[in-house]
Amino acid sequence: MSTVLRDARGQLLVLAGLAALLATVPFWLEGSARTVMIRIIISAGVGVGWNVMGGFAGQFSFGHAAYFGIGAYSSAYLLVDHGISPWIGMAVGAVLAAAFGALTGWLSFRYRLRGAYFALATFAFAEMLRLVVQGQEWLNGTQGLQVPVLAESSWWMLQFSTTSPNYFLVGLGLLVVLQAITILLFHGRRGMFIVAVREDEEGAEASGVDATAHKVMAVAVSGAMTAVMGTFFVQVFFFIDPALAFGPAESVAILLPAVVGGTGTLWGPIVGAAILIPLGEWTSKIVRDPPPFLDFVAGRSGIDLMVFATLLILILLFLPKGVYGSLAERFRR
C-alpha cells in the first residue's frame, strides 16, 4: 500500500521520460507486436483508472466494466448514429461515467456498503448496465455497434490506416494524461484526503475531511478515466458489444493490472499491464505454435487461460501486494 506521495515533479519527469522512450516504439515495432503494445497501453490505462478507486481510495471495484462500457458505448453510439467525433464522444463518456460513478458510489456509501457487499454491488451495477444495454434496440442490442471505416484517415474522427503509428501515439498520449492526473491528484490535498479516508474514515472525519464526498470523488474520477480508455478501445478495434463492454470478464481485466502490479501504488498498474498482456500473448502463442515437447497442446483452446489463471493464483499467494508493490516495499526497508 502506498503512502501519500512525495515529489510530484520527480514522478512527472519519470513519466515524461517513459513517454518519450515509448513514443519511438511505432517506428521500430510493426504489425502484431505493435498491437500488443497498444493492448498494454489500454490495459495500463484502465488499470490506472481503477487504481484511483480500488487502490488509493481503497474501494474495491469488481464492476469497473460499467465505466469502460459507458465510455465505449457513448462514443460508439454518437459516432455510428450521429457521425459525431469520438473526441466529443470520449468527453461525453467520461462525464457520463463520472456521473454514474458518483450516483452509484454515493448510494453505496450512503447505505454503508463495505467489503464483500460493496464489491458485489459494483459487480451488480455493471451487470445491470450490460443487461439494460442488451435490451436496447437503438444500441443494437446484443449485436453491438460497429465503427464505420472511413475512406481516409482523420485525427478528428480518430481513425487512421492500420499501419499508422498514430493509434499507438494517441493511446500513449491518453495513458500519459491519465497517469499525470493520478500523480497530481495524489500529490495534492484532495488525494491526501482520499488516502486518509481509506486509512481511517472516522479519523479522517475527525480531522475535518468529508469522507463521503472524497470517496465519491475518487469513484467519479476513476470512472471517467476508465471511460476514456473505453472510447479508445472502440476506435482501435472498431467494435463493441454489451458483453465485451460491460461483462464480468472486462471488470476483471480492468482490475488485474493493478492487483498484479500492486494496488494503490503509482506505477503498479502500468507494471502489471506490461506483465499481463505479454504473458497472455505468449501463452496463446504457445498454443498456436507450440515447441516440439509441447506439441500435444497445439490448437487446443483452454491451455492459455489455464496457464494464465495458474500464474495469477501464484502471484496472489506469493506476492499478495503485487509485483511492483512487493518490490517497492523491499526497497524502502
Binding site: F60, A116, V252, T263, G302, I303, M306, A309, L317, P320
Partner: peptide, 24 residues
C-alpha cells in the same frame, strides 16, 4: 488472512482454471 479482494480474485482465477481445464 489476505484482504477480501485477493480472496475474491483467487477464487475467480480458480474458476477460470477449472472452466478452461474442462474446455480442454
Amino acid at each position: 488472512g489476505q484482504p477480501l479482494e485477493n480472496q475474491l480474485l483467487l477464487t475467480f482465477a480458480l474458476s477460470i482454471l477449472i472452466e478452461n481445464a474442462l474446455l480442454l
